[in-house]
Design a protein around this nucleic acid. Structure first.
Lengths: 340, 340
DNA sequence: CTGTTAGCGCTTTCAC
DNA sequence: GTGAAAGCGCTAACAG
């Protein structure tokens, strides 16, 4: 039923080889035939069979986008960026979910299934096991990680230690001393250093200011608003609750703020909150945050793998660090009680 | 470099045909050889070439997921659902962005490029032009729409008129009379009836209660918080601002609430707000909303196309309507001034 | 510049 | 139950 290259060849009065060349714009075709073939092909509504072409060339014109979530803002934004970048140059995005890494309620990621299906991969801060990492390497296609640096391949991310430090220093500069942190669970590492790094940044800034925080100021949660909400409730139950909270993501921060308000505390009157990301809703919510350019990181990751696919092996090990910056809005202020 | 079927055949001492059969579990293979082949294949790390297999069978084991956005909650959630459903049965999700439909800053969707690349499609409330729709039909693969009913194929959605009515009736029941609506732009239709339907539901409920709203109570915006924010600012500048707002999405509602609070109005003290969706953050924000099961809609859409692909043509024209329900939280209350 | 001829790696009749 | 051989639709040498 579909039009094959042979139909075009016949209709144009040339060989299939010539049609193939003409359609791909190879130089070794006269402008005339090129034009004729193009017209005939378009008239016939011909479109090359990807499987046949892939089988013959070994290229798939497809890049795998592996991600643990798509519902969370960070991932959704990065995915959209990657997809656009790929589509812009005629590549397809094969979306590969790796399941809830924390709960394992989905079959594990088996990189082998991508064998021969993709020319490259963009992996979004997926907490991969060692096995999975090996599998990824074995695929031997250009691969860029977003959000975490992996040696031997490409990556684009932000300096999460600096992020934690920036947020915390902002709070300290405002005069806060009892500054808590609500971050990701360090147990769930698996090559996923973001939660650890942000926490480290917090600790480092605190210590540098001579403010060793008690262990119970280091709360953990998943990266969701309900998680932040619960964590904040625990913090508020302490004898000496914090006057400021550095949340490891804006979504956590939303939950933290909610818990504070439910407890009758004003934000930023009684407690200041700063997040990380600059989520789509953060401006609307007035959230002070450390902004990271997520869309851009996705774009760059896609560009990197496309470049290496295209043969620019000089970038094969490139690690790019995106800029972050504090965006002050209305959830942080000096503490009510400024005296020591 | 990669292991081919022939390698497995040789190692197992059988023909490639037998390997092919054994690996696919065809009945016409003795249990013994089946087992041997399986083991050898796994030992060798063999994985069938998708392009070769597709070329030979005509099936791609891939379904296209076409969407105008991935960053917006509704789409991200549906995409995640579809991807999981597909992966669960060994199908791949090919993510296809159709660009900002409103601004046209991205190349138009050309369904032909999916020719022969997918066995089916799930199309997420994408405002397709007539041309694009024709292209989709011409692909002649099982296709399910999410969020909009399209005749001649499958769909899963909610009754948006009922949604609008439910939200509005809730406000009316609380005693509100000056109820405005902030919805999507009716200009941007293109088979995308959601904004129109929700608006129609609002109007219908109002009229049924004998409350013909003035035209300027029918505000429009895109489906974002900033859009809702701007729309609410316009509403608040009216001589007689509304005491309640029905926002066509939770994201719009967040913006509306923000604008109200910035104007010094309490929510729900001075103005009530109800949204639609039950966005991930709505519970945390305490937003009253008309919940729609987005994840489930995505699942069902995927199941439908998988079923038809699998040969169950009885569902080829199935239209499923998902349930919605009002979730009362803390952004709606009786108006301050209950007197007429 | 263009045509001929092999495959790419798998599946599928058709025999046995 | 298993093998031989003929494609699936395209691209890549190799001639000319």
């Amino acid at each position: 039923m579909p039009v094959r290259i042979e139909d075009v060849a016949r209709a144009a009065g040339v060989s299939t080889a010539t049609v193939s060349r003409a359609l791909r714009g190879l130089p070794s075709v006269s402008t005339d035939t090129q034009e004729t073939v193009r017209r005939v092909a378009s008239d016939l509504g011909y479109v090359v069979s990807r499987s046949a072409s892939s089988l013959a060339t070994g290229k798939t014109l497809t890049v795998g986008v592996v991600t643990p979530y798509v519902r969370r803002w960070f991932f959704a934004t990065a995915i959209e960026a990657v997809e656009r970048e790929l589509r812009g140059v005629g590549y397809d995005a094969l979306l590969v979910g790796v399941g809830e890494p924390m709960t394992g309620d989905v079959a594990p990621f088996r990189p082998e299934v991508l064998q021969g299906r993709v020319d490259g991969m963009v992996i979004l801060t997926a907490p991969l096991t060692g096995q999975e990492m090996d599998g990824v390497r074995r695929l031997a296609v250009p691969t860029a990680f977003v959000g975490v640096a992996v040696s031997g391949t490409m990556s684009v991310r932000v300096d999460d230690v600096a992020v934690g430090r920036t947020a915390t220093e902002h709070l300290i500069a405002l005069g806060h001393r009892r500054i808590a942190h609500v971050g990701g669970d360090p147990e769930d590492q698996l090559n996923y250093t973001t939660p650890l790094d942000r926490r480290a940044g917090w600790l480092s800034a605190m210590r540098q200011a001579g403010l060793e925080p008690p262990p119970w100021y280091g709360e953990t949660s998943d990266f969701t608003a309900p998680g932040g909400h619960r964590a904040m409730q625990r913090l508020l139950a302490l004898e000496e609750p914090p006057t400021a909270v550095f949340a490891a993501s804006d979504e956590i921060a939303f939950g933290v703020i909610r818990a504070a308000r439910e407890a009758g505390l004003g934000v930023p009157g009684d407690v200041s909150v700063v997040g990380v990301d600059d989520h789509d809703l953060s401006e609307t919510m007035g959230l002070t945050t450390v902004r990271q350019p997520v869309f851009e990181q996705g774009q760059v990751a896609a560009q990197l793998v496309l470049a290496v696919i295209a043969g620019d092996s000089s970038r094969r090990h490139e690690h790019v660090l995106a800029e972050t910056r504090l965006v002050c809005r209305t959830t942080t202020a000096a503490p009510a009680d400024t005296s020591p």
